[in-house]
Structure formats: structure tokens, C-alpha cells
Design a protein around this nucleic acid. Sequence first.
DNA 1: TTTTATTTGTACGGTTGCGTTCATTTTGCT
DNA 2: AGCAAAATGAACGCAACCGTACAAATAAAA
Lengths: 213, 213
Amino acid sequence: MKDADTNHAHRLAGRPASQRKIADILAAARVEFFANGFSATTIEAIAARAQVSKVTVYSWFKDKENLFGQVVQTEVAHMRENFVPENLAEKSLREILLHAALGMLDFLLRDDRVRLERMLAAEMARDPTIGKMFLENGPLRMAEGLKALLRASVKKGEIQSDDLEASAEMFAGLVMGRMDLLLRYGHKYKMTAADKEIRAKRAVDAWMLIHQP
Amino acid sequence: MKDADTNHAHRLAGRPASQRKIADILAAARVEFFANGFSATTIEAIAARAQVSKVTVYSWFKDKENLFGQVVQTEVAHMRENFVPENLAEKSLREILLHAALGMLDFLLRDDRVRLERMLAAEMARDPTIGKMFLENGPLRMAEGLKALLRASVKKGEIQSDDLEASAEMFAGLVMGRMDLLLRYGHKYKMTAADKEIRAKRAVDAWMLIHQP
DNA sequence: TTTTATTTGTACGGTTGCGTTCATTTTGCT
DNA sequence: AGCAAAATGAACGCAACCGTACAAATAAAA
């Protein structure tokens, strides 16, 4: 196993590492892991999909566990990108929340996310660390952003709340309901954009009502 | 593999089946599966824990998959028992909801439930049927009960709702928030009875406010 | 006591898949 | 051109574990 970062200043000669292959392996691993989970996925299948020899896989990644971890980490990081909270003073709180709710719905409904969560749940028995990592980089981080927004709004007197944590959680609860549960267990939602807006609006209205000054 | 129900009227002689052993096997399987998940659990470990030979396991259960299915089914049935909704005309809606919310919280926090859900999520890739079974016997059934209660309350004019489905979901969302998510990924809650009551009350208050006539 | 089904221990066949070794080939840099 | 590292293919050791076969022991009913 070489090193993941191949920025060795002292490389002088020799065949350079093919970043393309490494990326291919990660992409292939993603597909296989997402489809079959950890234990049911074989390194050979990953190598085949990446059009790479098994030895090459092992030359870049220590073992199956390591490869899995990198896939998850990449995925979580990627998910995080899509969650840049609207940090603008232009719009009203209601508009911001509505936008956030719609974003949440879209995110929830992504098949990628559903599969990732199934995998993570499965791996909690083997490696509890991965759960903590996921929480801290995903849901908890998002919650902090929301709480910051709410704190500012409380200060401005737009809303009232004696427990920001609970308020943020209520918002998430109102928007999601039990969609994540149903999705995890295979329920197929067929929501149009209009459906999402109805749901988002209902959640925001309810939340605003609860928190009106 | 014999038959699971040994009520053969025509048994005449021979060593009778030991129901105790069968029960032991199921109990042991439950422990092992819950701790390690499906693939990481071995039949030998189950046999050892049940103090039974591996052959005996296979004589009562077709294979690993079958045994797993029976464990899950038993578990779901057991969960269902604990969800007899207060069908009483004595108490007020608020009291009923409060009681239901507290019940939900206790249920959510059970370690058994968390582990079971992790397992099920893991097995969705292998056998999607199991998800449907779980939903129908668990969450969806509970939702129906709640909806029936709400429907009656709407009729009595105690509350108003133009979408019972959404209202029921909101209730669940307000009570649970994201507890189930955090629990699934290893977060440890240390809630006292008082904490639970605070949370339940907050959720019920919010829900009642949203649905006041 | 005889009968008959249950239970056990041991052993085995078969499969799967991880991770490694090694000789060989490919590829780009200097 | 020549070097050095990357990549390959094939083969292997190894461990785990499923499911089965078989012969022997056990236990309760007839």
C-alpha cells in the first residue's frame, strides 16, 4: 500500500500513479457497497467494475475496511456540500425556512442517501465509530446551522423559543415526519414538486405558529 | 427439518420434541443476530449459546435465513403487543396523546428496538420483503390507530384537521424529532422520567396548538 | 421392554472471499 | 534509451462457515 496522497516532492522517475484508476476504484466501490452493503461486497467485484486488477486495489487501499471508510467519508463530505444554509439577510425567516424544508425533502428522497443510511446502520455493529463520524459531519452540523439561524431570529423578536435545540428538532420532525423511516424500509414516494411544496409549507406554517411571539 | 408446530394428533411413540430447546434456539438467535447482524452471526454460535448441537438447529429451522425471519417476525409481533392504544372514552384527547407520546418515547429508547432496526436496515439489500413486513406490522399499524383516534376527535369538534395522515405524521415527528436518527448512530440519551414528560408535553402542546379548531 | 423420534458429536464437502506473492509487462519521466 | 514505479494475471494459503451425512446415544410413549 502506497500513500493516498502522491504528492511526493522526491519522485524522480518511474511510472506515475494513475489518479484516474484510484478515482475509478472509489467510484466502483461506491456502487458496489451501496448496492450490496459491506459484507456482501467483494473486492474482486470492485476491481472488475473499476477495470483494474485486484492487486491494484490493494496497492492503494489497505484493506476492505479502509476502502469502505474512504467511500463513506467521501460521501458524507459530498452530502455536506449540498447543505450551505442560506445566510442572507434579504429574505424573511419564513422564506428561508421554506427553502430549507424543500432542500431537506429533496435530500431525504435521494436514493443515494437512503442506501448510505442503510449501509451505515448495518456497520454500526462492526464499527460504532462510523456512526459518530456520520452524525457529526451530517445531521448535527446541519442542526447547528439551523440553531444559529433561529437564535438570530429570536433576538430580532421574530419568533420566541425557550429551547433552541427542541425548536430545531421540531422543525426537522415536522418536515420529515416519518418519511425517512418509510424510505428506509422500501416505501416508494411519488412526490411531485407541488407535493413537496405543500408538505414544506404545512411544516413551516405549523412551526411558525408554534413559535410565534 | 420438521414442522414448527408439533401438534400432530397422530404422534404415537418416540421421544417428544423439546419445546424448550426450540425456544432456546430462538432466544439465542435473537441475541446473536441483534448483536452482530445477519451475516456476521454464525449458526454455531447460536447453537452454542442455546446449548444445543448445530444439527438440532437445522432440524427445526430450514436454514439461516429462515431462522432469521422467525426471529424478526417474533420480535415485530412482540413489539405490536405493547402498542394497545388507549381506547377509552374517559380521558381527554390531551391525556390520551400525552400517554401515547410517553409510550413512544419509551419504545424509541429501547435498545432492543434500536438494534432490530439496524438489522432490518442492513437486510433490506438482501431481502426487501422484510421491510414491507416490518412497516405493515409496526409503524403503519400504529399510524392507523392514531388516525382513527384523530378522526373521532375531529368529528367531536375537539380539533380540526384537513389531512389526518399529515396530522398523524406531525404528531410522530414532533415527539420523536430526530431521536431515532441519533439513536441509530450510537448517541446515548440519558433521559429521566421527568425529561421524557417535558418532551412529551412540549410535543403534545405544539400539536394541539396546530390543530386547535 | 420395545418402539420410535429426538438429539448429539464428529466429520466432511464445498464454497467463498480476503489478502499475499511473484514474475512479467506497461508506462511515463529524465 | 534507460530507469523505476505502477499495474497485471495467475496462483496460492488460509480461514470461515454453510449445510449435510452418519452412526450412536437418549428419552418418552406404547
